[in-house]
Design a protein around this nucleic acid. Sequence first.
DNA 1: GCCGTTTTCGGCCCGACTGTTTTCAGTCG
Length: 586
Amino acid sequence: MKNLELAAQFDRIASLLEVLSESPFKIRAYRRIARTLLELPEPIEDVAREGRLREIPGVGDAIAGKIEEYLSTGRIGLLERLKQQIPEGVLELMAIPGIGARTARLLYEQLGVASLAELEAAARAGRIRQLKGMGQRSEAAILEGIQQWHRQAGLHPMPYVLGPAEALAAAVQKLPGVARVDLAGAVRRAEEMAEQAELVVAAADVAGATGAIRVQLGAEALLQPGPWPGTLRVSGPVAGGVTAEVLVVPPEAYAAALFFRTGPARHVEQVSERLADRGWRWEGLRLVSSLEPEREGASVRDPSRAPASEPDMYRLAGLPWIPPELRWGEDEVERAARGELPPRLVEVSDIVGDLHTHTVASDGVATPEEMVEGARASGLRYLAVTDHSPSLTIARGLTVERLRAHRQHLRALSERTGFPLLTGAEVDIRPDGTLDYPDDVLASLDWVVASIHSHFRLDEAAQTRRLLAACEHPAVKVLGHPTGRLLGRREGYPVDLEAVLDRAAETGTAVEINASPDRLDLSARWARRARALGVRIVVSTDAHSPAQLGFLRYGVLTARHAGLAPDDLLNTRPLEELIQSVKPHR
DNA sequence: GCCGTTTTCGGCCCGACTGTTTTCAGTCG
């Protein structure tokens, strides 16, 4: 399936055209097809083979030709020509906040800067402030942006690693001689950022299986000895600029290897300390009893054993199995020993309704009808349609008049299809804390998500006041993406979240775990805090298309990392119960 | 670039903020 790589090609074309100041509409056409390809539910090769390319919205003669060109030759001539005009490294510069296409071009043409390293050198040498339209503040902002970039370098938002990791695991599972495969590392723990896709594989013939995996990973794959005798490690690039690292071990070493590779280090230490207390020490991937065999009674106990499974190993440490999402390396081992872990973490199938979605009425790409169809196909039992409010002009936020018509349309649709729809809005919280619709309009809606989309640079006191005011408003059911962060790209706005969560608890306002792969907002840490404070929590996708309803799993993984059980979330409940349990209009 | 109950050309989402300016270009959402 070439959808992802083709999308990346079109994105690069769009960016290069942007640097060259081409028509914004042409650029948008390439961006659009890139986005469409990411969400296309079938391989683009199949669509091309069946002559259906032109049926894809946004594909005309020119783009259809380029898709076919790429599928047959592996290249797009236009992109090759553009790269001769502007080195691709110039596109790196646009990862720094404040540097857009025009500034990137200026930096390249005036200073010859074509990489982040060269940009940093130019900024340190004070050469950027000499450019027209740039000054000392711009130069300082660029240096700060580069520092920020370095801190994030090599890290990807977890959802962008999870997909390639699972695809690789599925492919590896089919290879001859492979007995078992699991994800490990930060992705298995549902951390929000991950460096790479880590897999652990069990195979009786370690060398043979490793060879097959190396072939699977392609020409650039690198084979190395593993960290334990008799194990091998192979790493190489997978989709989306992500690197995979696969550890291959003999079947009897699998459980221990999976435990070590899942980590984090502090958790492994804590469990190993408890094993030591019970007379076990690690010798490679085997546990060896340090107790005298005769004190155990003759031939009762094998002095050396490999744990048969992770639960078996935790049992030897006197612990229940600790789900990987709860392995923070903090107090989870103590809590497990005291029997304080949640009996069951929430699962995707527990979520019965999505409470934050968009349609073509604002900036979504699907009609309400298509969203309902998608929701049904995903097994949801209700949906809140929450298009944007008017001040978010770029998203075609709905005026009061358009909202009224939209609401009628949704109600009719719900009646016609028998699918329960909450007619709602994602309403902007203005800088002064007031909301972007009049109170009577808000009161007429079934579901109001209040979010901040503008004025990110107000100070902490002002941002906190905005969110506190939103909590106080009787119509606001939930705070959307409460910190406003974009993973790896933008810190959240400054806010006293503790105070906001306190007020949310007092007023019965829920907070959202926004499942968008670029947000995961609230974070697991804050979601855990929200639960401790008694705040109601929902997991929502913020879907702008039916395919994005599938983001739900990222939100659920974050909820699991936060230790949330089904009962901790509002949208695990049937619609009637949800309505009764949210804060009433006052 | 695409698209058409506006149908083969002329539209296609816009407004605010920032740093550099002295009237604005570039970036961002």
